[in-house]
Amino acid sequence: MVKPEKLIENGIRLDGRKPDEIRPIKIKVGVLNRADGSCYFEFGGNKVIAAVYGPREVHPRHMQKSNSAVVRYRYNMASFSVEDRKRPGPDRRSIEVSKVSREALEPVIFQEYFPRSAIDIFVEVLQADAGTRTAGINAASIALADAGIPMKSLVSACAVGKVDDTLVLDLNKDEDNYGQADMPIAMTPDGNITLLQMDGHLTREEFKEGLEMAKKGCLMIAEMQRAALLEKYSSLIEGEVNE
């Protein structure tokens, strides 16, 4: 694909969004029967599935910590997730994404509740369209809650970037490829940032403004994450055992 002449025209982006709009999101909780917790997450053109196992025994044994659980996160892109076939298996990029995503979730998990155990998170990208790591973190945090793992709060993630000298929320593929900056951010609903990366250049002012935009985006996503979790038990108005 060639670079489009303009990425923003009259304040409207290529896919028809305003600069501060996120892409449509679709969430389904508990899609996998074999996993302890799972979530399917669609973020625009991104389609990811997250599975959580554990707490369970640690293998290999030497990885276990005697006073807390270990959290392991595997981000993996399916070979058919991108236009040209991706060579399967971990590569430099997916190892990095796994590491930063794990670190984005670790601060909210009460790891010390489960010494000598492992919490395994698997994120599979079925279709990629810029922002897969944020989609993966969003999905993983729901899957963790679904698995009944104690956490301080959910984590929501969203990217902010700069295209045609304008700050935009939640970049799509073209904006990511041809834009000037891309900054994925993950945070808890009360504003504690657990992931912040940047590719490209932003001025201090742009950074501050971008952070605020991302905050709003994350709050919107947090609301949708909550709604999705509650929906799984929609018929629930807790009934005591009737006497």
């Binding site: 909550r226 509650l230 005591e240």
Partner: peptide, 10 residues
């Protein structure tokens, strides 16, 4: 009944 569905962080 004082019961409700909550998510982590509520």
């Amino acid at each position: 009944m004082e019961k409700k569905l909550v998510i982590p962080g509520d």
